[in-house]
């Protein structure tokens, strides 16, 4: 892989004394799709909000690590410089398109606004470009639809419109936070195909956040699995899905219905217990209370991420040499 577009090193996000994201590192290459998987509360959304420096309140802050984009460290950039990069360098697509579009502004105007600000187009050119973008994200009859308000769009169309809004600023990296969770399955597949097509057409690099391994499997090149604020395993998609090394990843994959699951008529396997909350992290490996392979070492020592079989795993007892 050539030099990565974006490098995150030991990123830490804290709310007061609590670490929500505890030292994660990953790279994102040009035109690459990285899937960030994990349960609710594993810190994946916080990690991405931190990349945009759009954390939900003043109490939550980036407290360590670096976010390297070109020559800039986004973790240390003054707010004014960060604002110039937002939208343009990094775009974001959110989970719930119904609430993330301005309800009282026409769709076309919302797209044109970014075009005018970031590309300096005049009103007419921006409107024409907005219609063009709506066509690119697959909205039928875009010239008419541009004059609609968000409430006149269906869920899938709103998500397409929000992707068009994000693209209006011509970002190099798109952060998609659960972009298909609020949509039904057929529309979900269409949106994922759209993201793949945009990657082809624009060389867009995408960080795709999801709790759904199916979504990740359909789209991503590489996967990073998060648990309790840390990345427990990351590597190429096929490696990880075919042969997970971390017991948590294995558990996640087994929870999927389908051929690797319990089989027809059998209950779906689950991972026993609950993920720990940020205030009550267990000592040692954070997964050990739920891990079938936990040993005394796991209870005492936090496993450091290390390279293993072409990926990075943070586990004392990885599932090496075993046929799952």
């Amino acid at each position: 892989m050539s030099a990565p577009l974006l490098s995150v090193r030991d990123l830490r996000v804290s709310a007061g004394p609590l670490d929500l994201v505890d030292g994660i590192s990953f790279d994102l290459g040009q035109g690459e799709i990285l899937g960030l998987v994990g349960e609710s509360g594993s810190g994946k959304t916080m990690a991405c909000r931190a990349l945009m420096r759009l954390l939900p309140s003043r109490q939550v802050a980036v407290t360590g690590g670096r976010i390297l984009l070109g020559d800039d460290d986004l973790a240390a950039l003054p707010e004014a410089d960060m604002r110039r990069l937002r939208g343009h360098a990094l775009g974001m697509v959110f989970q719930n398109p119904a609430s993330h579009l301005d309800p009282v502004m026409r769709i076309g105007d919302q797209i044109a606004e970014g075009l005018r600000l970031h590309r300096g187009l005049d009103r007419k050119a921006a409107w024409a470009a907005a219609i063009d973008l709506l066509a690119q994200v697959g909205i039928p009859d875009p010239a008419r639809r541009a004059r609609n308000y968000p409430h006149e769009f269906s869920g899938g169309m709103r998500q397409r419109a929000m992707i068009a809004v994000a693209l209006s600023c011509d970002p190099g990296i798109l952060i998609a936070d659960e972009p298909t969770t609020a949509l039904d399955v057929t529309v979900q597949a269409q949106i994922l195909r759209l993201l793949l097509a945009l990657r082809e057409a624009r060389g867009l690099a995408i960080v795709l956040i999801s709790h759904d391994l199916g979504v990740i499997a359909q789209t991503c090149d590489r996967i990073a699995v998060m648990y309790a604020g840390r990345i427990v395993e990351q590597g190429a998609k096929t490696d990880i899905l075919r042969r997970p090394l971390h017991p948590y990843t294995q558990g996640l994959i087994r929870c999927q219905p389908g051929e690797d699951g319990g089989g027809p008529g059998l209950p779906l396997p689950t991972i026993a217990g609950q993920p720990p909350s940020a205030g009550e992290m267990p000592a040692g490996c954070r997964f050990h209370p739920r891990c079938p392979r936990a040993s005394e070492t796991c209870r005492r020592e936090m496993p450091a991420p290390h390279a293993l079989e072409g990926r990075i795993v943070a586990c004392h007892h990885p599932l090496t040499g075993e046929v799952p």
């Binding site: 309800p103 009282v104 600000l117």
Partner: peptide
């Protein structure tokens, strides 16, 4: 001001004036 569409507007790199008077005020 904490609404999702305001966060979305910030994610596009809009400045406070634009967010206040183009997005917050009309709503």
């Amino acid at each position: 001001r904490g609404a999702d569409f305001i966060v979305a507007a910030k994610s596009l790199g809009f400045g406070p004036l634009r967010i206040m008077f183009r997005h917050l005020l009309p709503n």
